[in-house]
Design a protein around this nucleic acid. Sequence first.
DNA 1: AATCAATTCCTCATATTTGCACCAAATTAA
DNA 2: TTAATTTGGTGCAAATATGAGGAATTGATT
Lengths: 244, 244
Amino acid sequence: MDKLIYIADDDDNIRNLLKSFLEREEFRCIGFPTGDALLEQYSNSPCDLVILDVMMPGHDGFYILKEIRKSSNVPIIMLTAKDSDADYIQGLDLGSDDYFTKPFSPVKLVSKVKSVLKRQEELTGKTSAKETDDGLISFADIVINRKTKEATLSGEPFPLTPNEYALLTYLISNRDRAISRTELLDKIWGYETQVETRVADDTVKRLRKKISHSGARISTIWGYGFRLVTRSEEDGAEGEDSED
Amino acid sequence: MDKLIYIADDDDNIRNLLKSFLEREEFRCIGFPTGDALLEQYSNSPCDLVILDVMMPGHDGFYILKEIRKSSNVPIIMLTAKDSDADYIQGLDLGSDDYFTKPFSPVKLVSKVKSVLKRQEELTGKTSAKETDDGLISFADIVINRKTKEATLSGEPFPLTPNEYALLTYLISNRDRAISRTELLDKIWGYETQVETRVADDTVKRLRKKISHSGARISTIWGYGFRLVTRSEEDGAEGEDSED
DNA sequence: AATCAATTCCTCATATTTGCACCAAATTAA
DNA sequence: TTAATTTGGTGCAAATATGAGGAATTGATT
């Protein structure tokens, strides 16, 4: 996973507690005794998630939150001691942020961190190129909106099932290479699922039918997997390098 | 300030240039590679100002301008590559608020954006797509007052239960994206893990019934979750939901 | 205790998606 | 060429997702 988390809390105990729990889950953590210190570090070198206590020496957590929000949409989890703070937070339009009221369960916080990061990844995806930071990715005349989970073909709505959506998004994000069946099964169906190898072919088949009138085509790499190509460059390169 | 600006330009460089300049001034920006993509997004979730390039793949900026003007008086700034009066006049007659000829100064564009928005605010009071300073957020003909926790529909009082209120508020403040069930459970019910429950569906069900006579609709993203859209433009695009 | 509103749970009906079997077609190897 | 393997298409059944109605539960108030 390898995500970097900044934690600001003036209480050493809480900071270290959080660190140990998060590091046990393979997160990298840096703690700060004040929000200002965190902010300073963040502006030099951003991280993947921020945990902010509300009450701290110097500027309070709300101030730091606002400052970070001026330049970043990094997920932020607030820690509050008082219920009144919690009320206040709920009144805010916090967007994708979360809050915890002390005392809280470190286990729950960790799982919250995980789910927040997962959600973030869902939205942002890890696309090589072409991704416009507004959540749109496209290939030929197909545009996928990661935010609304909608796809369009030449501007027309283009209904996709969940699996088809995941497959097409993955293909588009990896347009520059061929993808093996096993990789598709891993990434889209997950490691655990016990399904036939041919299920990927099934979804490819259905997706092919749907995009048959588009400028995109899923070419077969015989004995290996698939690759997304534009219809104009019909004969995509066959056997690329790595196989597995 | 917190205004939302949509930009349509097929040139990634220009789009990103504008975005960075505008975001530096605290505007929120979403870029689109085509006017059609912008139009689609706008109809689902309006913004406070639109910047349109004239020459784009698909429908050109003037067409998009006309389409937007059919339903909205949002300020629109046109970008044109040609320094011809025809463009200027045509643009003005169609109801654009201003135009810039490429190459233009980003600084000037930003100041124009500011002045146009200021004028707009003086004219229409507060018609921001986002939260206004007095704690009001709105969508279609629904207005929610976060301070008093009251809602109105077309000005009429609109009773909501606590869960319905939380759900609707969350949907409205995340109008630009689809929201998964697990996120709703997480945010509104506070469930950490994926419990097998359909409480979210239940509340969605009841909320749908209540807003059935409003301009808003909760569309289902099959296999994923929900998203708030306006009822008026589920028009041309029929199956505009049920995609994932 | 009785009542009421809000929420959750349950069941059923329906629609959609997905996995798989089976066979045909394509590709490779011999 | 033939045989073995891989891939693609059709159709169907199982699994899953959704929505509606209403019953059960909770919690507050009388």
